[in-house]
Design a protein around this nucleic acid. Structure first.
Lengths: 236, 236
DNA sequence: ACCTGAACACCGTTCAAGT
DNA sequence: ACCTGAACACCGTTCAAGT
């Protein structure tokens, strides 16, 4: 002890800030909670700061800006992604579809994360693992290099756009009934168009408004993409 | 004349507001000019009002809200869309691709309009004509009703997402050199990954970063979609 | 009916000042 | 080094008041 004299344990500053210090992780935690509870619009620097009992300026010591926070949210969500087992040349198309389903599931688990992810190259560790896995599956299916490389760009684009579209509806806070009513009105609108100018739209009105919950449409989309990629595959 | 006495031509109010009255069209004109000149971020109710020499509140007599203004911008842009000639069963795949190219061209002509269009069902007159045309082409190609109906949902989703991604880069105001440098760094990043964990990513680094200008990637995407849809076609 | 100024409740980001 | 209050330059929307 370099100080022999007894002294009180600094009673002058008893109310030392007990708050645990800010960290990137705590900021992302708080942002993620806001995202899940209140949607993407609620994730502002100010609201995140408020949730952490501080001011918005304090965040900038740990996060460069809002855009970086968005990327961190996407990375965090990507942690939840699951991959199929070893690439199997016999079932590569189904495996690829499983990857896409897994991507959509993650985005649905964190509603609104698609809004942060769209137009963003996914470069986090987990996202890169997903890319690697899909490349492996595509090569197991004899898809040529260039097609496989572009496919792993096309696939997240499609899945993210799908999730984004869903999140827009969610942001409107529509109930099942609201959606059903909207779909009904949309069908009526299509059917009410002049049949001379819009014969196919009128005839296919029912088909165009079916699968509104999104699952069937998504399954159709991933089937189209998978079949399209299969057309690029070299003969085995 | 119901007033016989001569009188000055109301000299009390000589500075009668010469400004032509606000209309929806003038508002959309001004918004479109902002969009083209300065990108989507510049299209705010306040900036549009300022361009029209008035206050933001004045717009609300003609436009319900920002979301409606966004829709009007999309409708306006859609006017520029061109369609192929009569659906030809022999060339339906190429015709469908032409539709997609035309959609992307329109969105590129109005950079940023994709940001207003994403997650929006296109219901304007011109957009409906585009849908009708694509349905006609798909049916000429013997694509079943349900597949054709979902296809005309999938196609705008893909094209809009592509244009959106491009507009994000544009918003960053990158030059050709910036893009080239970014692509180079990205390739180096892929190549520098541990080959044990990311063998395919390392091997395909060059392919993954090629086609950065977007045209080749887009051509690949519309080929995948078209071929995928063709796999649904009934035998003729 | 149309337009307006002013206000309300928000944004992201910066910066000098504190500890 | 980290945190803070206050400010700056923005948003969309509403509303009472004007013409």
């Amino acid at each position: 002890m370099n100080q022999s004299r007894w002294q009180p344990i600094s009673p002058e500053k008893p109310a030392r800030p007990v708050r645990e210090p800010l960290t990137r992780d705590r900021i992302v935690d708080a942002a993620m909670e806001l995202l899940v509870d209140q949607g993407y619009e609620a994730v502002s620097m100010r609201k995140v700061a408020q949730a952490l009992n501080t001011g918005p300026a304090s965040l900038y010591a740990h996060v460069a800006n809002k855009k970086e926070l968005d990327q961190l949210l996407v990375d965090r969500a990507a942690q939840g992604m699951e991959f199929p087992a070893e690439p199997d040349p016999e079932h590569w198309q189904e495996q690829l579809k499983d990857c896409m389903r897994s991507m959509l599931k993650v985005m649905r688990d964190y509603p609104g994360v698609a809004r942060a992810a769209i137009g963003q190259v996914p470069l986090g560790e987990r996202a890169m693992q997903s890319t690697e896995k899909m490349l492996a599956i595509l090569k197991a299916g004899n898809v040529p290099d260039q097609a496989a490389a572009w496919a792993v760009d096309l696939i997240p684009l499609y899945v993210t756009a799908t999730a984004f579209e869903e999140s827009v509806q969610r942001a409107w806070e529509w109930t099942e009934d609201d959606i059903a009513r909207f779909v009904g009105e949309l069908r009526q609108f299509f059917q009410s168009l002049p049949a001379e100018k819009f014969p196919f739209t009128v005839a296919l009105a029912a088909s165009m408004t079916s699968g509104a919950n999104g699952d069937e449409r998504f399954e159709f989309g991933i089937q189209v993409i998978t079949a399209g990629l299969a057309s690029f595959a070299d003969p085995a």
